[in-house]
Simulated assay, not measured.
Amino acid sequence: MIKNEIIPEIKLNYPLAESKLCYRLTTMGRTESDLAQEIDSTLDIPENITIGYRAAMPIIELKLTGPENQKSEMDKLWQQIKSVVNANLLYEGVLSESGETGLAHVVSKLLHDTNQSIVIIEQQSAGMISYQLFEADAPVVKSEIVPLLLDEPSSYFTGLLKAQGANIAIGIINFQEKNSQFTLIIATLKQVLHFNLKYTGRSQSKRTQQQVLAAIALDGLRRYLLNMPIIGANIWLEVME
């Protein structure tokens, strides 16, 4: 009924407007208002081309929408936008129906492309990193949630790597509720990278806090796999000595 009667009736009474193009990218580490202010103040955006923002802490999706007959102008504008957000760009396009797991799909592809398996150790994120990577079909060989503190994290991580025969391990551990400090670790059998970090954003619900920590860990792993600086530009993240 829908195919043979309803849809033809809708098309008859509501002719389709001109085809639209929509470009998407996802960022982390800047506010929506900050992004919008810089883009609006530095770029000349035609009236019939619009920029939209969708915030879902800790990420912001940016969309450029306009008529198909202005593709050339939109392509040029899109390159300018990507230049503005480059330091905070996570990925371009739509990688999954849920923005929450899009970054995990990026990491999963990088792990498969480089033929690396992974071990995940979590504390405050309570399994959220593992869940997102499992959903993205990443080559996860083990995941676990550890007690509050790990006194010797380097040996713990390398021990798990050896026991599981994995190539890389990632962990968010030693979270301190009183000051939101925590440790991000990315480890292989050759090196263990420690990053003592502090989340400086406003107080969030437990779930949102877990989403923030998971995104920081996944972005750090993405950057490691792409040979980029591990900690990206993020106004809510402070690197501690």
Rank of each mutant, 00 (worst) to 15 (best):
Q116G: 08
M57P: 00
Q80G: 00
E68R: 03
L25C: 13
A17L: 13
S33Y: 02
Y23E: 06
R30W: 05
W78K: 10
D34I: 02
C22I: 14
T27E: 05
L89N: 03
N48I: 04
L103W: 00
P15K: 14
D75W: 05
L110V: 06
A55C: 05
P58L: 12
M74R: 06
K20V: 08
L35P: 04
T27C: 14
E92R: 08
T50H: 10
V119W: 08
Q79P: 00
D75E: 15
T101R: 09
S72I: 12
G52T: 07
K76I: 11
L12M: 09
L110D: 01
V94T: 15
R24N: 12
R24E: 13
A36S: 13
E47A: 02
Q116H: 14
I59V: 15
G102P: 01
D44W: 01
E100L: 07
L103M: 10
G29D: 02
G66A: 02
Q37K: 10
V107W: 10
K109T: 12
T31N: 08
E73Y: 05
D44S: 14
L111T: 07
Y53H: 09
T101M: 05
Q116F: 07
G93S: 13
Q70I: 07
Y53R: 09
I59H: 01
R24K: 13
N115D: 14
R54H: 13
D113K: 06
L110P: 04
Q37P: 02
L25E: 04
D34V: 02
N69D: 10
E97T: 14
H112N: 12
I60M: 06
T31V: 03
V85A: 05
N86Y: 10
L77P: 09
G99T: 07
L16Y: 06
A104R: 07
E73T: 09
L16S: 15
M57L: 12
I60T: 15
E32I: 12
P46D: 11
E100M: 01
T42K: 15
N88A: 02
T65S: 15
I39H: 02
Q70A: 08
T27A: 14
S117A: 10
G66V: 01
I45N: 01
L95Y: 00
Q116W: 08
P67K: 04
A55G: 03
E61D: 06
N48V: 06
G102E: 15
L21Q: 11
L25Q: 01
P67A: 06
E18F: 07
A104N: 09
D44P: 00
E73I: 11
